[in-house]
Design a protein around this nucleic acid. Sequence first.
DNA 1: GATGTCTGCTGGAACGGTCCAGCAATGTTC
DNA 2: GAACATTGCTGGACCGTTCCAGCAGACATC
Lengths: 347, 347
Amino acid sequence: MSQAGGDTGLERPSRPTIRDVAARAGVSKSLVSLALQNAPRVAPETRELILAAAEEIGYRRNAAAHALVARRTRTIGVFVLDLHNPMTADVLDAVQAEARRRDYRTIVVVGGEDAAAERAELEKLLEFRVEGILAVGHRLPHGAEEAVSADCPAVVLGSAPRGVPHLGSISNDDVLGAGLAVDHLVGLGHRRIVHIDGGASAVADDRRRGYLEAMRRHGLGDLAAVVPGSFSDEGGYRGARAALGADVPPTALFVVNDLAAMGALAAVADAGLAVPGDVSVVGYDGTALAGMRPIGLTTVGQPLAELGMRAAAHLCGLLDGEAPAEAHALLRPALVERRTTAPPVGA
Amino acid sequence: MSQAGGDTGLERPSRPTIRDVAARAGVSKSLVSLALQNAPRVAPETRELILAAAEEIGYRRNAAAHALVARRTRTIGVFVLDLHNPMTADVLDAVQAEARRRDYRTIVVVGGEDAAAERAELEKLLEFRVEGILAVGHRLPHGAEEAVSADCPAVVLGSAPRGVPHLGSISNDDVLGAGLAVDHLVGLGHRRIVHIDGGASAVADDRRRGYLEAMRRHGLGDLAAVVPGSFSDEGGYRGARAALGADVPPTALFVVNDLAAMGALAAVADAGLAVPGDVSVVGYDGTALAGMRPIGLTTVGQPLAELGMRAAAHLCGLLDGEAPAEAHALLRPALVERRTTAPPVGA
DNA sequence: GATGTCTGCTGGAACGGTCCAGCAATGTTC
DNA sequence: GAACATTGCTGGACCGTTCCAGCAGACATC
């Protein structure tokens, strides 16, 4: 009963403050503050004394108090649409590295489930006074349009509406990338190339457009065919089944992303056909998944690390008042040739 | 020139505060504070008035000021070791959902690169006054041992040292899981089962031990063989090559995780052998990767969502002063049978 | 020796909230 | 109708920092 430590959950241990350091070092709290900031007007021996005192009592600056008086947080909010997309990890790594390099903190929130939860997360971000928003995943969080302003600019990693003030974007050129896929297949001798698309989204639109334009460019406009799919494994499977069930089946499939291409690969196998012997398959995104040895998917690779780095650099640069670079940057994708594409039979 | 908005980057627009709301509603700032907190003693019509005023001027609470006076942040720091591991996304989703449910915020940092950067990130987390640390990835961040205390408990998702106060862990039972893999293969008729391990880590140790114990239990102790590998694609490939090159090659491979199993699958193919015709392969983790249609890897599935949920629940519960559940919980994995295992030839 | 300029330090006012004590009205009780 | 509660509101202290004005004392300048 006289046992110590039987805490009631009501005690306030309270971490040491700048005043505790001051008391221990026998100086004023102002001087402690100056010493900790490496201010010039502090005598070297006093500084040592203060630093030692801080160390001894385990002092650590309170970020909330600091943010309050500094009136800024040096923090950007990173909104991630889908953590499961293999692209996200690469992009996020680069974003965090670049933010750290520029001495910005990141706070990551995950959206995608439902609009209400997304709004709530965004609200928390704004209460935190994040200085900018970086959206990874082709769109802003729900309700973010009205939050984007001079004191909270945003950058979308993917296509974003042009002309909106304080809203930038970095994306790869999806139209061009889709063209690369078609060029590659046509170069191998394919003519009946079907595109399995990603439904209604800006990215899917661009890739579809790039496919159609390239087919026309190669004089294959009449053979162009788009089958509805989605960005998922499942969508690719369904799309490929539909495509392969046509009267005159295609010899090649260009699928909207790598994940969906997995599904397409499975559908080709289920149809008793071989890849790339009977059917060639090209994905999009250049994810680690595509590079996995038993898969070896030919894909259109996006410069993910550069995308992330550029997006973070753009946003942090804006916040640091650097010369405002072009608001909408487009990076060039490149074809990554692996083992799911080959000349068509009889070519 | 007389154009407005030519900002110099020096102006202070400064978001509206509680005082601005008070001025607009014609009440005191105290009352605004009470109204925004849904305090009881506020007249309904006044509350409406205040809420309307806040809405009109776009007031948003300042989290830093709130944290300062509340002396707590309701935030936990989530330390992620490897964003690229497909397990991470599942776990993180569950962690975030559970934290949100309990009205805690999460702030995610990524470690793994180098110890110094990890320490710096941890320092930022502590300056933020996170109330607890949740480590996703089998270990605490570097330098976290001394930070773990009554006012900053930690939970490791994976095995953690026992007996350290304020340090808990949630993990799946790797020894049992490895046993399940062996049981499955032995049940199919395999006897020469080789384990491709994960090198020197607590998880690798447990899985290796589980494998060895199970082999002995089945009376196959003499046939047990462990080949060095790693948790990566590459490590699995190397390990499998070595295993298949033996004088009497195995009929089944139990690989330390799904990613390494990908490499093993490739090595089997490169050796001109068929899966599961000639060689059966079992992975570990139950990742989405394993479930992908063209792969269909048999694996030991961890209850990832439950793992994440339990970890977050444990930590938040601790912070809310709930009855301290057992510090180290062990969850049961389950075998997920797919298409990479079959009876050995001639069985 | 009056004036001025450094150097090294200190007190106190912010920052934007919360919350406690207090204070008029109004209502209730005996 | 005095005593006491209750309701609805307000002023001010405080949370842990930063930073500005100010102030001794040392030193240089005329």
